[in-house]
Amino acid sequence: MAVGIRVYSERVGDGGGEPVLDAENGEELMHVQPGVSIVLSNGPPESPGTLYISSKKVVWLSDVDREKGYAVDFLSLSLHAVSRDPEAYPSPCIYTQIETGDDENVDESEDSDSECNGTLDLSKITEMRLVPSDPSQLDHLFEIFCECAELNPELIEEEEEHNWISSVDQLREEGTEVEDPNWFMSENPTSTIGQSNGDHDLARTVLELQINDRRFEDADEMEHDVDSGHH
């Protein structure tokens, strides 16, 4: 599902330019915004870079360090907003929240942990700010983010259904898998004895039934005999 932000440094050609996109699956480059610095969590702004917005993800690549870059899928972007209030952040920026998959623990631990360690654990990054050197581009960027987010509708309903069905199937399979060997295990050693026992029991019951039948007949005869004896 949501994977959060990740390191991304695959560039087209000699590694100087655009990020490698998944063109085979229809990924298109929608917008390029030069002069953007990126801020992960509450960290410092990272070296100037270029923002590439594709139909599937947001990619930021450093202009200085060719090996440096990040990407986040639109499917992982919970919300995005234009932040202009200097109290919220000193520079006007696009503010985004990132879904990491384990939201419950992240909110409390992320800020303190990532700051204390000095290194950023990308899987715990829930906030990203993109600060363009030209703030007049913010509204335009916001609209592009909106358009691209709408291009990436959630597959959640289907996924949940599939997960649900598959998990039920798994439960059933696990259940039968667990039951089957037990069943065979207990059946195999006893089956030879059990079957012959069963046959004996059956034979006895049949015999007893026959005996009973005879007894009834005998009883009739006995009654008859007794009756006749009284006579």
Binding site: S78, L79, A81, D85, A88
Partner: peptide, 16 residues
Amino acid sequence: YPHMLSVRNCFIRGSV
């Protein structure tokens, strides 16, 4: 959430 203090407009993904 002090940092969200006053964003003017905001896009929220339906799934969240």
